[in-house]
Design a protein around this nucleic acid. Structure first.
Lengths: 145, 145
DNA sequence: ATTTCTGCAAATCATTTGCATATCT
DNA sequence: AGATATGCAAATGATTTGCAGAAAT
C-alpha cells in the first residue's frame, strides 16, 4: 500500500486524516517491511509530530488494523508488530535480532525451500489455523437460524 | 507423557519432586489435550495443594517447558497455554470458545483436509518459522570461530 | 455543529523478580 | 548440609480505558 492509497482508505471509511495519523503512515512507509512495533512507530512518529502520544499511536494502529489497512502480527514474548504487506506470506522471525522477514509465497511450502531461497535457517515452526470448531459452528448455526 | 514419565524426567534432570509440582502434573494429566493456561492450572492445582501460589505455578510451568517436559504455546491476546502433546501437530484455535484442538499431522498439510477430517472451519491461518536470518547466522559463525 | 481524535493519567492483565523462608535430596 | 523451590509483595511491559478538551469534516 502506498501512502496515497492509505489516505484514500481513511477518507473512504469516514476516518479522519489527522497530522498524527499522517506521521504514523509516514513511519509505516519508511520502515518498509521491517514490521515495526508500536514503541518504535511511536518514537519515530513523535519526531515528526511532537505532541503525539503513545495511546494515540495504539489507537491509530488498532483502527488501521481493524479496517484492514495494515495487519497486526502477534508473536511470542514480543510486542505486537505491524505489517503493511497484506499478501499471504510466511513470516520468518529471527530469534536473535527479532527481525521479521517476509517470504511472499502461500502458506503450504517446504521448509527446505525457504532456507535455500532466503538463507534463513529454520529451527522451529508454528502453524496455527484460526476458525470455528465443530461445536461452535453448530451453535452459531442454531442461534442465527 | 504419563505422570510417571514426567516424574522420572524431573528426577533425571535433578529437579525436585515437590507436592506443588505433583499437583500441577495431576492437573496437566486431567486436562488432557485442552491446553490449559496458567490461571486455570493454578485454580485447579490449588484445590489439591492449598498453599500453592500463582508465582510457583508460573515457575513450575516455565521449568517444565525449559526442560521439554511440556510445551508453551503463545497466541494472540490470550494467556499462554501449556501443551502435553510434544509431537509435531497443528493447533486449531477456536476463535469463539478459545478451545485449542490438536490435529496430529506434520505441518505441511492442505487446509481443506483439516476441515474434512476435523470439522474445524478455518478462517485464518498463521505460519511462522523461527530461526536465524542470514546476517545473524554469519555473525554467530564469526563470533564462535 | 457534529463526530471523531487526541493526550493524559490511571487501570488492567499476564508474567516476572527479589528475597527471605521452607523443603527436597 | 546444600541445593533448589516456594510464597509473598512489588515490579514490569504491553496495551487499554475513561474522559475532557481539541481538531477534522
Amino acid at each position: 500500500m502506498t501512502k496515497e492509497s492509505m489516505i484514500s482508505q481513511l477518507r473512504k471509511r469516514g476516518l479522519k486524516v489527522t497530522p498524527q495519523r499522517l506521521a504514523i503512515i509516514d513511519v509505516l512507509m519508511e520502515q518498509g517491511n521491517s514490521h515495526p512495533g508500536a514503541s518504535l512507530i511511536y518514537k519515530k512518529a513523535k519526531k515528526k509530530r511532537k505532541s503525539l502520544s503513545l495511546s494515540t499511536t495504539y489507537a491509530t494502529l488498532n483502527e488501521f488494523s481493524r479496517h484492514g489497512i495494515i495487519k497486526t502480527l502477534q508473536f511470542d514474548k514480543m510486542e505486537d508488530r505491524y505489517d503493511r504487506n497484506l499478501e499471504e506470506h510466511i513470516n520468518l522471525i529471527c530469534e536473535r535480532c527479532k527481525k521479521i522477514l517476509d517470504y511472499n509465497v502461500p502458506f503450504i511450502v517446504d521448509p527446505k525451500r525457504v532456507v535455500k531461497k532466503t538463507g534463513f535457517s529454520i529451527t522451529d515452526a508454528r502453524l496455527e489455523y484460526y476458525g470455528l470448531c465443530r461445536e461452535c459452528r453448530e451453535e452459531e448455526r442454531s442461534i442465527k437460524g
